[in-house]
Nucleic acid binder design. Structure first.
Lengths: 238, 238
DNA sequence: AGAGTTTAATTGAACGGGCGATTGATACGT
DNA sequence: ACGTATCAATCGCCCGTTCAATTAAACTCT
């Protein structure tokens, strides 16, 4: 009742704050450089803590990584909530899924894509029973939406898992590699102007919906309301 | 017994063979586990050579990695050849690009996608002036095809770089993560049957072409007719 | 063609730096 | 004053590189 704000100032002792500082520092570093590419000294330095505390709180570097991975994935998946069970039109749900992913990957959990991609590439060093279900859950959401769209006849009869892989793949790839693109552009090695991630969001929504539609969206047909679903805010964030 | 051929028997001295054995072993291991995830002892063991030879031939582990990366990327890009300059219809070229990528990623250079993805994630540790142009070249091919399609009016007016990122992203992601999927399925942790990569090829071709088309349904079997549920989702209020 | 010499490939051993974990002491909070 | 959080120092191992020694191949000169 006296301390005002446990921000990052790390004044006196605050176990909870240091624990979270370690998690935050580790999340960023692991996402940027991978498990093997980061040393505990770096993490501790970035967190402003002693490196022995990593073992103290998380039983070692691997334990810290596992904690980070699990909570990040869980948070990212949780955001998609009960999308799969909603009775709304599949195309609308897909758009919302992609928009959710965008928001999550740009503001809420900016390190989710890189962490997840790296973990999939590692293929199991930390892929244990705590982590697999999270990845699986994300997969199932898209899968379910698409399967329903196919069943209802609004989507072409695509293999749901295939479609899901295509969608998740382009999303994860885009957001996970964004830092590198920006770096290359800053170094003047990429002679292009980067599109914003918001533009990417709109683009992918359009490609996916049009690509899946049984009867493709008409662009010139009569009334101007052939735009499938609204692409803007769904009533959240801003 | 004693084979005269220079297969893998490594009987007498054969500098060229050992050099290539190191390259092959390194390619696979680096693609599967990343630069930091592999030790020189492992590479040497897999190649059946002494680990000092890595320094001898490639001036160290990093040099071996650089050589592998550069030649793999170059080979993968080269396969796309002069697609960008062909006067054929953009949609056809895009299909061919994707098919080329599929062939390259499945039979010719199975480690290209994982290697490239990892390198992009690393964001420049080895991203030097020998490597960047290769990645750039791949990017430019798709970009050029799409830009022409847009200019000619057969594609919607999408941002070429955006479209390119979506396509490359889903391709690289799919092929780079295939080993992991197979591993998970083998462990009975993924309760799905995996689609073949050939199915994926067809799927992505379809999604991309339909997603980009100005006037859709121009793939085959001229389905000018559509009646199913195209209006279902138009019932939204705005 | 063959002995002798030079060059190149290969090897095992050793070095040294780096890194994650541990430990035992210290100081803070209640 | 007791338990816990924090810290500096240290330990021990792993790994990439280097080096000196060994051997195979290439070359030279009669």
């Amino acid at each position: 009742m006296e301390v005002a704000g446990k921000k990052h100032v790390k004044r006196r002792r605050d176990p909870e704050a240091t624990r979270e500082a370690l998690l935050r520092a580790g999340t960023e570093l692991f996402a940027l450089r991978g498990f093997d590419g980061v040393t505990v000294d770096e993490i501790a330095a970035k967190a402003g803590a002693n490196k022995a505390l990593i073992s103290y709180y998380f039983r070692g570097k691997r334990g810290l990584y596992r904690t980070i991975l699990q909570s990040t994935l869980a948070a990212g998946v949780e955001r998609q909530g009960s999308l799969a069970e909603s009775p709304r039109p599949p195309a609308e749900l897909l758009r919302e899924f992609i928009a959710n992913f965008h928001h999550m990957a740009t503001v809420e959990r900016p390190f989710f894509p890189a962490l997840m991609l790296r973990e999939i590439l590692e293929s199991g060093k930390t892929f244990d029973d705590d982590v697999v279900p999270e990845v699986l859950a994300l997969f199932q959401i898209v899968r379910a939406i698409i399967a329903r769209g196919v069943a209802e006849g609004v989507f072409r009869p695509v293999h749901p898992f295939l479609a899901h892989l295509g969608i998740i793949g382009s999303l994860v790839f885009f957001y996970a590699t964004e830092p590198t693109r920006q770096r290359l552009v800053a170094q003047k090695r990429l002679p292009v102007s980067l599109p914003t991630s918001k533009e990417f969001l709109d683009h992918i929504q359009e490609i996916v919906i049009r690509g899946l539609a049984v009867e493709p969206a008409r662009t010139d047909g009569g009334t101007g309301e052939d735009r499938l679903m609204k692409t803007e805010d769904n009533g959240e964030h801003r």
